[in-house]
Design a binder for these strands. Sequence first.
DNA 1: TGAAATGTTGGGGCG
DNA 2: ACGCCCCAACATTTC
Length: 461
Amino acid sequence: MKSVIWWIRRDLRLQNNPALHAALQIKLPVIPLFILDPKLLENPPSQRQVFLFNALHSLQNDIANLGNALIIRKGNPLQVLHQLFQETEIETIFAEEDYSPYALQRDQLVQQAFPLHLIVGLTIHHPQQVLKSDGTPYTVFTPFSKNWKLFPKNRIYTSKPDHLPTTPMPLSSLELPESTPLTSFPASEKEANLRLHSFLNAPIFQYATGRNMLDQEGTSTLSPYLRFGLISIQTVYQGALNALQTAQTTEEKKGVETWINELIWREFYISILYHFPNVLKEAFYAHRRHIPWHNNASELKAWQQGLTGYPIVDACMRQLNQTGWMHNRGRMIVASFLTKDFLHNWQEGERYFMQKLVDGDPAANNGGWQWTAGVGTDAAPYFRIFNPILQSKKFDSQGVFIRKWLPELKDVPKAYLYEPWTMPADVQEQSHCIIGKDYPQPIVDRSIVKDRVMNAFQVSQ
DNA sequence: TGAAATGTTGGGGCG
DNA sequence: ACGCCCCAACATTTC
């Protein structure tokens, strides 16, 4: 008897899974397969990889509860599939389509050798679908989002199947190494659904303002779960549409709409990477590819470690280092700081974020960095420079966030918290925080920043 | 999904 | 009553 492979890549879930749904339609035994591709594995493992392994463990349990077994194999996907096709009779392979340059190339090679059916599911719309009237891709967000909203949504909603027909012959599977759970992001499909629910329950209605507050839990924190598909974007989007129906005030409606916009930003950057894969190597705009960056190695290091002397920057970086996640407002602040205040090449920041972020996704991460640096699609103008002091006063108005991540500033009075270098010597002593010893002097003199950025960007034109 | 500089307006104090 | 100045609040411009 033949079987069907459900090749799992970025869709580690049972509920509302279009690829699994398609595989079940065939009415043959299903082989749930995950391939550990050495090209995508890191040593030592990043927090993202730990999250992935945790999620695989969880999926393994969920699949076992359906009377089937998740098969994990290690190696080049072509070779792994070749081996499987020799071990057992396989009718076809179903997988959710992935649009990163590496995934596209990999799947193209697999398709030349095997019957691989790619199903749309990573995004609501295929990147080929939302195009300008002349057939070329959008490079500006607003018209993209308008058009995106016009397209009818293909809604395949499938609840968790209650049975997964299994092959009569057991297939061998790799034992996953034990990995400790990430405290901030327990990796299971159930957790993803819980997070969506609690977000839709209240925070989404204040999202328009709440999303900016560093000291509040105003965001969904779904990004790692969407990154690996522990929840479906369709489920998430439908939840938001339902919230839109129940929104009472215009403010609440605005909150929901703002969040939906963020989901569209996600698809916008996936689309940009799909149509312009070169953005992973260079700035989207040719005239922004030769900026004379300052690129100081010790400044980069201070930024990475959260030791720049600017509290909000350091707090955000330490949140990233410790949890593998950073608030979106924080990402903008620290990215602006690296690329503008330090005038450091955005690609170095992009790389560091990819190393550290549990939700690190090449499309969104690249898009965000090019946006902040002012070198990419629909980018912030290059002269838009975030003032870390103003930003922290605005979005961490009580200083709760700074104190949480910078224990050395715990006792610093609020009046000096945002600019600790202004503390008189006696106050430094009283608050057990000697500037230059317990907490660094600010590394860059912000009064030179704007001129330096303006010069660098003008030279590059 | 800036920030700072510059411009405009309007209310109140005051001679 | 009126003009003048000051200045905060808001709007516009500039990078």
